[in-house]
């Protein structure tokens, strides 16, 4: 019996101490981890959109509550003196959700740029959506009021050949972003200024 008690005590004790130590390490690294996640997950997309900003959009970001959702909005100061915002939206693709970061120039009310953040599409096609300039450049300069859809759906965007679903998902995400921008326009304007 004594043996059993000892076994239990040692196990529990060790587990408890480990829990304490881990909690301490976690609280010590939590901020840095969050920063890193931002840097490496959203960072590349933001940079590609806001290449010309004078500030670091990753640092100048804020949380915006939209209903139950929390959205991180990145702010960039443009060289022209204007401001741009960027946030992420999702569209339903072939292998799962496709994340698209959409940057909007608040001065001109046009799309500054788009970048695919996450996708689980067939290798090659998803990557094309990410890197194919002829596809992504189509969005640049579109006004926020524009309807974004592939030509097959009656829109003006040429889909990536052989990857209509993926292209459609990207358009879906961008359209949703524009819609949300217009909805939140007032809030955004307030926060930015």
């Amino acid at each position: 019996m004594n043996e059993l008690v000892r076994m239990t005590v040692v196990l529990t004790g060790l587990a408890t101490i480990a829990g304490g130590v881990l909690a301490a390490v976690h609280s010590g690294t939590a901020d840095r981890i969050a920063a890193q996640q931002l840097e490496y997950v959203k960072g590349p997309a933001i940079r590609s959109i806001m290449a010309a900003t004078t500030n670091n959009p990753l640092e100048d970001s804020f949380q915006l509550s939209i209903g139950e959702e929390e959205k991180t909005v990145f702010i960039g100061s443009l060289a022209s003196g204007g401001t741009a915002v960027a946030f992420e939206e999702f569209g339903r693709g072939f292998g799962g959700d496709i994340g698209v970061m959409v940057g909007i120039n608040m001065e001109t009310e046009t799309i500054l740029g788009t970048a695919v953040t996450v996708h689980s599409e067939t290798p090659g096609l998803g990557a094309k959506a990410k890197n194919d300039r002829s596809f992504t450049s189509q969005f640049e300069g579109l006004p926020v009021s524009a309807t974004v859809a592939v030509t097959q759906d009656g829109g003006q965007i040429d889909a990536i050949s052989g990857a209509t679903t993926t292209s459609r998902a990207v358009c879906e995400a961008i359209a949703q972003a524009l819609e949300r921008y217009q909805m939140l326009h007032a809030d955004l304007q307030k926060t930015v200024n």
Partner: peptide
């Protein structure tokens, strides 16, 4: 962790 350890033990 305490409870997991205790339950296991």
């Amino acid at each position: 962790t305490f409870s997991i350890g205790a339950v296991s033990g």
